[in-house]
Design a protein around this nucleic acid. Structure first.
Lengths: 249, 249
DNA sequence: GGCATCCGTCCCGGTTCCGTAAGACTTGCC
DNA sequence: GGCAAGTCTTACGGAACCGGGACGGATGCC
């Protein structure tokens, strides 16, 4: 579905940071990968390995959202789902083994808020969690505009300007720039950026290099010797504003 | 502005708690899921399985809002709708089947306050119930006329004009335009639009593309290079007003 | 019953963008 | 100064994306 807001998950100051997610899956590998990703995005995550624990955790942990595997030992996932619904209105994303449009529809009919087929990429999961949560909070409230040293970036309108002049940024460039603006004066490794901005577990780091270069071409006065988006040799990149404070690694 | 939502769960919204919702659907599964969800959200819910019971309950139960399935045994949903409207001004949300014929019916549905295609996620339903209720509680309810940069759009009368000249918009085009006018300078993915304007949970995104094109044909001075309803590559569409800022090809 | 309208879907062609590879260059270290 | 690791630059192929044209089906109007 490529998901609406293509904006990946900047770690920081989002409305969503700190939201509580209950992850119910009996496969420890899946659970671990998924939860580490969700945590990296800023969610508070609790895991449950079976239906019983899930119901218990739903009460005690009071999650804002539940990710629920349909296949569970003991009580079936759907049964857990039904019992949850009787009590709370927490949104649920359902995980199922095989993916077809029919399954998706069945999931929706059962009352799920979204649906994801295994195997899924953690990125996909994070995107869906964010999307559902955002929808459940207040759908179309514009995000706040960032204004920093001549730059102005409006996430909702997806417009970035420098001194009033619009910068023609592509999707990736915009996302990258947004992330950097939200976390100025801080060094990020290529790996960090690949994970947070791209949402990739692994991948070619040069992808980041190239995009940084392209972004520089559009935001730097002299792209040949960058003054804002600087390279920290052997570490990564930093977007510097104002009184340049050094952040140690 | 913005500021994150205070309450994590959707239950809050004090004004809405305790409001009475009449749910009319003959499918017991749908009815059960939806009503339990609505109850968990804080509404008082009563169910009716057919048109006759619905009309009866509308009198006795005095709901603040009615959720009405279009397909009903006995009296048709639309007929029920019409009879309801003769007597009370209770807002109505219409449930329709996605694959079904009624598109032209959309004209009649214009009388409905909102509509939603099956299958839907209960969260979606709750969102719409809340939004319609909030609207109907508000004083400004007689759907205020929108006036923006030469355009004038009257939702109740379903008339749109540019510089005093009436635009001949179809139902879908009007709905789309109305939504965009209400949320200017904000990018929406095709998926967003499909959900909110069409009331679909899933579907062919090209539907949106085509309707955007048709709408452009009617509102843009030069439809070949749109100045108002612009494409944001890889993301979606934006209706721009105010800051005359436009991307050339 | 015939005609016009509207809607949703599909295909096709042009364009934009992204990720990767390969080579040149720079930095840090010995 | 020489070497290795890290970084920059450029180029390119393929994928994703968007717009236009068109068509069938359904509906309402005459």
């Amino acid at each position: 579905m490529s998901v609406s807001a293509a904006t990946p998950s900047p770690i920081g100051d989002d409305d969503l940071v700190g939201r509580r997610v209950l992850l119910v899956d009996d496969d420890p590998t899946v659970a671990e990968v998924a939860s580490s990703y969700l945590r990296a995005t800023g969610f508070v995550v609790e895991e449950a390995a079976d239906g019983f624990a899930a119901l218990h955790a739903a009460d005690r942990f009071a999650p804002d959202l539940i990710v629920l595997d349909r296949m569970l030992p003991g009580i079936d996932g759907l049964e857990v789902f039904r019992r949850l619904r009787e009590r709370v209105a927490t949104p649920v994303i359902l995980l199922t083994a095989l993916g077809s449009e029919d399954d998706r529809i069945a999931g929706l009919e059962a009352g799920a808020d979204d649906y994801l087929a295994k195997p899924f990429s953690p990125r996909e999961l994070v995107l869906r969690v964010r999307s559902v949560l955002r929808r459940s909070i207040d759908e179309f409230t514009p995000e706040s505009v960032l204004e920093v040293g001549g730059f102005r970036l409006d996430p909702s309108a997806r417009i970035a300007t420098r001194d009033g002049v619009e910068l023609q940024l592509t999707v990736r460039e915009f996302d990258l720039f947004e992330f950097l603006l939200k976390h100025p004066n801080q060094v990020f490794s290529r790996d960090d950026l690949l994970r947070t901005v791209w949402g990739w577990t692994y991948g070619d780091l040069s992808t980041v290099t190239v995009h940084v270069r392209r972004l520089r071409e559009k935001i730097e006065r002299d792209p040949r010797s960058p003054a804002l988006l600087t390279t920290v040799w052997g570490v990564g990149y930093r977007f510097t504003i104002g009184g340049a404070q050094d952040a140690v690694v």
